[in-house]
Design a binder for these strands. Structure first.
Length: 370
DNA sequence: CAGTCGTGGCC
DNA sequence: TGGCCAAGACT
């Protein structure tokens, strides 16, 4: 990597901030420096693009305009507002942190990185972002943009996918930051990373800091940042059960931890959990599913297959393939062993659906029409 | 540390 | 289609 002289550091700061002053994006959370506004936007923006976040942010602020409103929010309503944004533990941690601020800090925001990071869902990056943008503290906010931008500017060869690398970048960025405008500096780096220095289709030729971009000057930009590849999603097979009685459908409450935790969804049974002999017929599989449901939940169901190809949905680490099945439940069934309840079709829009749940419902509707 | 945790967009 | 990416944090 390259080292910069004090003069070059000052020149970089002036060039970057001048560009930012004239070209910064007009975003809803940039109307003021209210820590509540900065915080909500930073959490929503984790692993999520700006254009996706904007409408969610506006709706969120109308419903929960203050940290007190968020602390007192109903979880189901909170999840409905967050519906479709993904990484739902972000929303639950958001409320926990709001309660921490109200209860532990009497509604007054802590201002240090150390204190901020003790709040649920606030890690090194978000603590740095809030401290610098809302409280003008001279601390770095090292996100994916900062890692990519400085890896290129300085030809840093460390793997940005490794957690340890963040500390190295923090120390480097501390020396490059202006003490008087840390929040603007951090945000300028993000705007740069979202435009001229994006991951793909970057345009260094026209970048305001192209003369500071060593990788560009050396013609080796394609080599930066150094980043190891992610593993590909593992296939997982499920049977999805649409158990209904007129307009009521049986929903299962997912466990309190793990993927899509606490959501109401059509019952899913892992394909691996259904044991059948090698040359089992389709009917054998359906009977095995019924036996499984009876032994697990004491529920007597009758299952029939729905035509059409399975519903597929890919997460970061899993690729689900769901075979949809329609089922009826014995009228006199006792649900006390089943972690779920009946939900009327007319109430579906009241509760938060995950994407894969929506896919299952839409596919079922399509099949019924045929 | 390495794995986990969603969704939408792009090529 | 599949792989990668997008203002990370938690276990």
């Amino acid at each position: 990597m390259v080292e910069w002289t004090p003069e070059k550091i000052v020149a970089f700061q002036e060039t970057l901030l001048k560009w930012y002053d004239n070209n910064k994006r007009n975003l809803p959370w940039r109307r003021d420096h209210d820590p509540y506004h900065i915080w909500i936007s930073e959490i929503m923006l984790q692993q999520t693009q700006v254009q996706t976040v904007i409408p969610y942010y506006e709706r969120f602020m109308k419903l929960f305009p203050t940290v007190q409103a968020l602390a007192n929010a109903d979880e189901a309503i909170l999840m409905k507002v967050w519906e479709g944004l993904g990484y739902y533990s972000r929303a639950r941690n958001l409320q926990k942190a709001a309660q921490q601020i109200v209860n532990d800090y009497n509604g007054q925001w802590p201002t240090t990185v150390k204190e901020l990071q003790e709040l649920s869902g606030i890690g090194p990056y978000t603590a740095g972002a809030i401290a610098s943008i809302a409280f003008n503290k001279p601390v770095p906010a090292v996100d994916g943009n900062a890692l990519r931008v400085f890896a290129r500017l300085l030809e840093i060869n460390e793997d940005i996918a490794k957690p340890q690398t963040r500390k190295l970048f923090e120390n480097i960025i501390k020396k490059l930051m202006p003490k008087n405008r840390p929040g603007d500096f951090n945000q300028a780096i993000m705007d740069l990373g979202a435009s001229y220095m994006s991951a793909k289709n970057y345009d260094s030729e026209n970048s305001p800091v192209k003369l500071f971009n060593q990788a560009y000057l050396d013609g080796v930009e394609d080599n930066y940042p150094v980043k190891t590849k992610k593993k590909r999603p593992i296939p997982v097979n499920y049977f999805g059960l649409l158990i209904h009685s007129q307009d009521d459908y049986l929903f299962e409450r997912r466990p309190n931890s793990g993927i899509l935790s606490r959501f109401w969804m059509f019952p899913l049974i892992k394909g691996d959990d259904i044991q059948t002999k090698k040359d089992a017929s389709e009917d054998d599989v359906l009977r095995a599913l019924e036996a499984q449901f009876l032994s697990t939940y004491q529920l007597e169901i009758h299952v029939k297959k729905i035509g059409g190809r399975p519903v597929t949905h890919t997460f970061t680490h899993q690729k689900w393939q769901i075979t949809l099945l329609e089922a009826e439940l014995n009228n006199s069934s006792d649900l006390s062993y089943f972690p779920g309840k009946w939900i009327s079709e007319s109430d579906f829009r009241e509760i938060a659906f995950t994407k894969v749940q929506t896919k299952m419902w839409e596919r079922y509707q399509q099949q019924k029409e045929q």
